[in-house]
Design a protein around this nucleic acid. Structure first.
Lengths: 252, 252
DNA sequence: CGGGGCCTTGAGAAGTTTCAAATCGTGTGG
DNA sequence: CCACACGATTTGAAACTTCTCAAGGCCCCG
C-alpha cells in the first residue's frame, strides 16, 4: 500500500520558503515572517490522484501549496463533475471552509503536491495582530474570485475551441508566473483530457476532437498525460483573452 | 433627460441601517458602528438599466447595496455577455477593484438601486484598527466565491432545464433571506428572459423554451419582466440543489 | 397610431453527446 | 519474458440539444 497523504513537522523554515524567493511574489517583513512561522504547524505531502480536501467535511487546517499541481472540483449526485479551478504554488487552499461550516468543494492532487499546513484557529490572531496579512487574505480571496469570473464567462459564452484555447493559455501563463514548471524541461501541463473536459463542461469525446484541432493548428502538443503549449500568443488571440499583469503577489 | 445616477450625502445613519434590522444579518458593536459611519461618504441612487460600475475603469469607491437588485457581468469583444452573479441588499460591490488596478467586471441595476458609498482609501484603516470588520470582508469575499463555484457547476454540468431551475430557486431563496421582496405583494424576481439567458449561457430562444417547460410544470409563472416562483421545493429537486443555511451574516 | 421592448413559436443548421470500438504504452502477475 | 489488464487517447456514426434565422403577438408609451 502506497502512502497517499502524510503530515510531517515543519522542515522548511519560512524565511527560506521557496515561494518567497520567486519573482512575482511579495516579500514578508521580519515581523510578518515571525508570525507566519508560528502559524505553520507542518507540511503535508500528497500523491497524484489523492484527495486533499473532501466536500462536506470539516477541515481544521488551511494550506498553502508549496510545490505541485492540484484542482478544486464539485460533483453532482449522479457523478457529473465540474473542475472549478486549479491550485499552484502560492495558492491558499481551504479558506472557504473557515466561514462555511463544511467544505463546499473537494481538492485533489494532479502531481505530487506538497503543502504548508496552518491552524485555522489562529486566523483570529492573524486578523487581530497582523493587518497586512489580513489584507493579503482578502487580496487572495479576491483574486480567486476574478479567476472564477473569467471561467464563468468562458464556459458560458465561449465556443468549445475558444474555451480550450483559453484554458490552456490560462494554465500555461499561470504556471510560468508561478515558476512551477520543472527547470530546463519542456513546459508540461499535467492534465488528462478528462480533466480538460470536466473543466470546460464538455464531454470527453468532444474535448478530444477540440484539442485535436488545436494540435493540428500547431498551438499545442498533446502528450500521454499532459499538454505542451507551443504558441501562447495564438491561443490568446483565439480565445480573445489576455492575462492581467499583477504586481508583486501576496501569499501566506 | 432622466437622472440615472445620483450621489447624495449620507441620509441614513448607520445605527438605523435597514439591513442590520433584518433577520439573518449580524449586528455591529457600538465601536464598529462608529467606524462604519465614518467610512461612509454618501448614498448613491441608480435607475433601472443604468451602470454602476464599468469594466476597465478605476473606481475610488466601494458600495454596499441598501435596496434593489443588480447584476455583475462581463462581455467578450464581440458583445457576448455573461452574467456572473446578482447583487442584493447587504452585498458588497466593487471590492475586487481594490486589489486589481481596474474593475474586471461591470455592474448594472435591475431595479432602482440604492447603495451606501465608502471610500476605498479608508480600507487601510479598516484593516489596521478593526480586525472584526476585516474578518467580515474576507467572509464576504469567500461567500461570493462559493456562489461562483456553484454557478460554475451549474453552467458546466447541468442540463438547460436543471440550470434554469437552479437559477430561479437560487435567486428566490436569496431574495427571501435578504428580505428584498416588497412586503405583501407577490415575490417577483425582476428579470427579463434575456438576463436569464445571459446567466445560464444559453440563447434567448432556447431559454424561452426552457422557461416555458418550467411554467407548464407549474413551478414558475412568467410575467412581463419578471418571474414568480410557485414551487421552490420542486425546483430544488429538479436542480439537485439545496441552499446552504448560513448563520448570522456579516455586511459592511 | 407607430415604435420599441419583450415574449413566443417554427424550422433548419450547427454543435455536442452518447455509444461503440480500436490503438497504444505501462505495469503486473504468471 | 509474455500475456493481460488498465488507463488514456483516438475515431466514426447516430441521436439529441442548442443555436440561428425569421416572424408574429402583445403591451406600454410618446
Amino acid at each position: 500500500m502506497v502512502t497517499t497523504k502524510s503530515l510531517i513537522p515543519p522542515r522548511i523554515p519560512c524565511d527560506l520558503c521557496p515561494i518567497g524567493r520567486r519573482p512575482h511574489f511579495r516579500n514578508f517583513t521580519q515581523e510578518e515572517l515571525g508570525f507566519v512561522q508560528s502559524f505553520k504547524i507542518g507540511e503535508l505531502s500528497v500523491d497524484p490522484g489523492a484527495t486533499v480536501i473532501s466536500e462536506g467535511e470539516r477541515h481544521p487546517q488551511l494550506y498553502t501549496v508549496l510545490t505541485g499541481w492540484g484542482y478544486r472540483y464539485k460533483i453532482l449526485e449522479d457523478g457529473r463533475r465540474q473542475i472549478l479551478n486549479y491550485v499552484l504554488p502560492g495558492d491558499l487552499v481551504g479558506l472557504q471552509g473557515n466561514l462555511m461550516a463544511e467544505m463546499m468543494h473537494s481538492v485533489e492532487a494532479l502531481t505530487r503536491l506538497t503543502l504548508c499546513t496552518f491552524e485555522r484557529d489562529k486566523l483570529t490572531t492573524l486578523f487581530r495582530d497582523h493587518p497586512s496579512l489580513a489584507y493579503d487574505l482578502t487580496w487572495i480571496a479576491s483574486r480567486e474570485e476574478s479567476m472564477l469570473d473569467e471561467h464563468l464567462l468562458s464556459i458560458g459564452r465561449r465556443t468549445a475551441l475558444e474555451r480550450a484555447a483559453y484554458l490552456l493559455a490560462f494554465l500555461d501563463t499561470r504556471a510560468e508566473m508561478t515558476g512551477v514548471f520543472v527547470e530546463g524541461g519542456p513546459n508540461i501541463l499535467p492534465l488528462t483530457q478528462q480533466h480538460v473536459a470536466d473543466t470546460l463542461g464538455l464531454s470527453l469525446v468532444h474535448t478530444n476532437k477540440t484539442l485535436r484541432k488545436l494540435a493540428d493548428m500547431g498551438m499545442v502538443r498533446w502528450l500521454d498525460r499532459g499538454c505542451e503549449v507551443l504558441d501562447q500568443r495564438r491561443l490568446f488571440d483565439l480565445a480573445g483573452w489576455r492575462p492581467t499583469k499583477e504586481g508583486p503577489r501576496p501569499f501566506i
